[in-house]
Design a protein around this nucleic acid. Structure first.
Lengths: 225, 225
DNA sequence: TCAAAAGTGTTAAGTTTACACCCATGA
DNA sequence: TCATGGGTGTAAACTTAACACTTTTGA
């Protein structure tokens, strides 16, 4: 250590993850009912401490992986939270990230081991520390980002119906969307491709399944929903 | 310290400030030509380390104050930067904030002592570490925020002409704006109030001076530029 | 046969953009 | 008197929002 840094303080730096999932028309968060200290028995976000050998982005991936078993998940930094007493046990500076996962693909055993549950985002329990603010900021940021970039597909299966997609955006924005206007806008996005597959689970008639074509999107990256 | 935290690593946490000023139709950043180690002689953002007795937001205010002498400045967190080797001297996690200041009101002596200079944002020198990314993110965030909230006024004197205001927004967006359309939009914002004062410095004819009425804005907070 | 979700176009309203000349004044 | 920035309105283009009925099929 050279002299320049020697008189400075060091801090614990934590990661907290706001994990979004989408199921049956509702946005959900994956929350821990803590079976460990501190704040045992209370609800919190999944978290962990940054380690020496990893960047903060890598730490966020690791923490998400520890709970869900998932890799290569869409994550975005929300920001850092640095009030002196935000964690009553110790001074901890936390960096929060949100993640968008397909609710069918996570490791259910790991989640059970952590005592984690999907909770409807409109019916959240009380959360510890400043986690409510983290959730609020994550939600705002995700909503904003989802309106200008095609990140919503991370919350859906590879193949989805337009009704599912619409219902997802209705959940993200918290408002209903006109079906014809919605489909008109989707039709203009050539990278949202109709497949020849039909989903029969959602209706008697059956609905066409679509997929998001990442490569085609990169060629014509215009998106607005 | 309780057992929960004891095995975890601690980190230096720094603040870096992207300080925006506006002068003669141009956006500028206040940058240091470092007369200290590390990276002496190179250009960087103003920075400092977070201390035990302050929140990260307070640390950002302190760091800005150390350079400019200013208090109560509009600041917003850009995000945290946590690559392992971002600071080649030591592992340092940095949180960056941008600040909007009135270029007429800072403490010039302090700035001189720090060997800091205003640099046109379109002619920036090479910056150390990951400061270029911080600047880019700050610029994007500020531009985005300026379009939906009346933060631009922080870059102007209390009284300003519509030409100055337009020129500011042209600098923020990096594109020219139609004068009549611009003034139409301003006229709809009742909280941007015409005073009976005239600025004669910018033209022979003289231009009406306007002011931003914060209280009136809070009653009808609609803004879009 | 009917309930339930899928699918499909047109029009009105609102917003955004383009555009050109006169005014007041000090040098 | 003229060069300079200040100040003003209208029409066309475009975007967004509102709206209702037919189709398919399994129960």
């Amino acid at each position: 250590m050279n002299n320049y840094y020697s008189s400075k303080s060091k801090f614990y730096v934590a990661i907290d993850c706001i994990i979004f999932g989408f199921n049956e028309g509702e946005l959900n968060l994956l929350l821990l009912k803590r079976n460990f200290q501190p704040a045992m028995g209370e609800w919190s976000l999944m978290g962990g401490f940054v380690q020496e050998n990893e960047s903060t982005d890598d730490a966020a991936k690791r923490v998400l992986h520890e709970l869900t078993g998932l890799d290569k998940v869409y994550m975005e930094q929300v920001g850092s939270f640095g009030s002196i007493d935000r964690d009553p046990g110790e001074r901890v500076i936390s960096i929060s990230y949100y993640a968008l996962i397909n609710i069918n693909e996570y490791d259910k055993e790991l989640v059970q081991q952590h005592n984690a549950y999907w909770v409807n985002i409109n019916e959240l329990p009380e959360l510890i520390f400043d986690h409510p603010q983290m959730v609020e900021q994550a939600r705002d940021l995700m909503q904003q980002k989802a309106s200008i970039a095609p990140i919503g597909f991370n919350l859906l299966p590879t193949l989805f119906t337009l009704s599912q997609l619409q219902s997802l955006y209705e959940a993200i924005y918290g408002e209903i969307i006109d079906k014809r206007n919605f489909r008109k806008r989707i039709a203009e996005m050539d990278y949202i491709e109709k497949t020849d597959k039909i989903d029969k689970t959602g209706s008697k008639r059956g609905a066409a399944l679509y997929k998001f074509n990442e490569k085609a999107y990169r060629k014509a990256p215009k998106f607005k929903l």
